[in-house]
Nucleic acid binder design. Sequence first.
RNA 1: GCCGAUUUAGCUUAGCUGGUGGAGCGUGGGACUGUUAAUCCCAAGGUCGUGGGUUCGAGCCCCACAAUCGGCGCCA
Length: 449
Amino acid sequence: MVKTTWIGDVQNGQHTDQTVELKGWVKRSRGNNNIWFVVLRDSTGTIQCVGKKKNLGDEMFETLKGAIIETSVVFTGHVRADERAEGGHELDIVDVEIVGAVNSERPFPIGEADMLVEDEDGELTYGGTEHTLNHRHLYLRTTRATTMLKLRSSAFGAIHNYFRGHDFLEYQAPNFVAGAVEGGSTLFEVPYFGKKAYLTQSWQLYAEAAMPALERLYTIAPSFRAEKSRTRRHLTEFWHAEMEMAWATNNDIMAHGEGVVRTIAKTLLEEREQELTYLERDLDLIARYADNPYPRMRYDEAIEILQGKGVAVEWGQDLDYSKEKILTQDFDVPHFLTHYPKVAKPFYHRVDPEDENYVLCHDLLAPEGYGEIIGGGERTWSEEEILQRIDEEGTPREPYQFYIDVRSYGGVPHGGFGLGVDRVVSWLAGATHIREVIPFPRTSRRVTP
RNA sequence: GCCGAUUUAGCUUAGCUGGUGGAGCGUGGGACUGUUAAUCCCAAGGUCGUGGGUUCGAGCCCCACAAUCGGCGCCA
């Protein structure tokens, strides 16, 4: 039963002029009464397989013709290099076995055209339709979805490799929590044995508790936010790569943020060139993201630039997406925005000792209109300051007592960041919507399938 | 929460001034000796999102509701 031959290897020329057994699914078929072509798909690629009636006999030829789209089959045949076939190789079928038949009264419900939608300019582009979202479990096997999942896998691997290569320890925080990191209105409340609990919005507070133990730690975990956002960059459940680091300044943390994002871009180029090409991504552009340093700009400079462009923005406002978008138009690599006004950020951001109106924080903005992919900075680390900041914001102390305790026993300067993995993949893949890069997207309007 | 839009066959969609709803894909049948999203012929498949209204007559006009999509705010 073990599968030994992969279509990708066949197309690489590893089995040319050999007899092999190919296991996979029918992607497309066509032909006439004497010759039948099946494009066979597996996780590694596609190959055209050819069956001739004179070789197979009437019965097996009819079996082959009956293998409609997404039938699972085992083909035994002879591999031949052939310029006429896409990919350069072809299988001459000598034996056909149907493993899982498809009922022709209920054919595979997703065709190539189902994934294409018209954008505002009338151009055909890929996007989720209600139909493909309702059939997400079947949509996953389409070429585009499979390609996105491969990019995603490489991105996750790159993040693990980066942090482990820099002596970070992987650490897990609970997903049921009692308090909030961001504003309380975006928490998912869950019943918890007669009490209330919430789904975590971030690993950060619990990571800070382990910071004095592990000093350099990271995770890749889901975060949950009950935001009714209807945008192409929001999910209610998203994958959050977070790091926390003792004895670190804002600049140290930014260096790692830049490092991990560049590593993801580099890894995709190394492992997924074929997939990026399929998505019509400009490889030179991805190489720039991998190789060039990411500029840094203070919040005040950003405000000046925006005001210079005639954008109505006042000092003290957080920068929303429309303003980020205007800023990123002048950049061809991601860039950091640092030193936001204290009034725009929550209590855990450390106030800049050189100017108490600002906090030592950073956001990393991706180009091409994809917006914020990292938020991070130094944490308020002394007991005195954290109490002051919590009270200033009118936040109750009680749920954060453990967080305060961490500072009461040997607090040290530290900080970290959170990176939206789905957002990074969406940006590097050039996806039309963040839901393209996660298998079963959760949004304010959808928890099924 | 706010603003805008969409809903016609399994899917993608056309549908004029309100006058008996067309096509492509897929599926089934047939033709063709190498196809590339094959081609050609034929067939089945529609209470036009739901409910109400206007009208001699509604896919089209009006109202309500629902589902979905896009954008904003907020964020990763």
